[in-house]
Simulated scan of single mutants.
Amino acid sequence: MIKKLAEQLVNLTVKEINELAKLLKTDYGIEPTTITSSLNNASTINADKIGNNISTNQEEKNVFDLVLKSLGNSKLSLVKLVKEITGKGLKESKEIVDNIPQIIKKSVDKKEAEIIKKKFEDIGSNIELR
């Protein structure tokens, strides 16, 4: 019985969740803030499965452009890292570093972008994910 109830709750639409929240507050005196946020999260997770576009949160971005914003501690280390990340030559990498802010890599998936960002932060540089 509990499992079936949980299944029904997880598959509620946002409109149904809001109606449930109002009912719980007016009829039972239960503040629905934590219940509503939990149910909204569950509905968002199952939105694709049930064919609804329920998500009320902004969708998480998965592809980024990496923009070099600051030099950091060592210009030479930065040029070497830009060369490694972009696959460009030493001269082109130096030109990128000399003309910041610059996009150093486009359309990078989230995991790779975070790894690259960490490498730049390790040498004191700042990378912006756009």
Rank of each mutant, 00 (worst) to 15 (best):
P32W: 02
S107A: 13
N40R: 14
D27G: 14
T36R: 11
D65N: 08
N53W: 00
A42F: 03
N99E: 06
N41Q: 10
L129W: 00
N46M: 15
D98C: 00
K49H: 11
S38D: 13
A42M: 09
T86C: 07
I115Y: 08
I30Q: 05
I104H: 06
E121T: 06
K69Y: 05
K91H: 09
G124N: 02
L39D: 03
K25H: 07
S43E: 04
S93N: 07
L5I: 14
K91M: 10
I50N: 13
I104M: 04
G89N: 13
G72M: 00
D98G: 00
K3I: 00
N46D: 14
E112N: 08
S74E: 01
I104T: 04
E114S: 12
T26C: 10
K61E: 00
N18T: 01
R130N: 10
T44L: 11
K94R: 10
L78V: 08
G72P: 03
L23D: 15
N99T: 06
T26M: 13
N18D: 13
E95S: 10
T86H: 10
S77W: 08
I35Q: 03
E92H: 04
P32V: 00
V67K: 07
Y28M: 04
I2G: 05
T33F: 07
N52C: 15
I127K: 05
L39P: 05
L5N: 13
K4R: 07
S125H: 09
N53F: 07
I54D: 07
I116T: 03
N57D: 12
K118S: 14
I116L: 00
N57T: 09
S77F: 11
T56L: 15
E128L: 14
E92D: 14
E121R: 09
T26E: 15
S74G: 05
S107C: 06
Q58L: 07
G51T: 11
T26I: 14
E114K: 12
I17Y: 02
T44S: 14
Q58S: 02
V108M: 01
V108L: 01
I103T: 13
L66A: 06
S125D: 08
S70T: 05
L9F: 04
M1N: 10
E31N: 13
I50R: 13
L66Q: 01
T26G: 07
P101I: 05
N46K: 15
E92N: 12
Q58W: 05
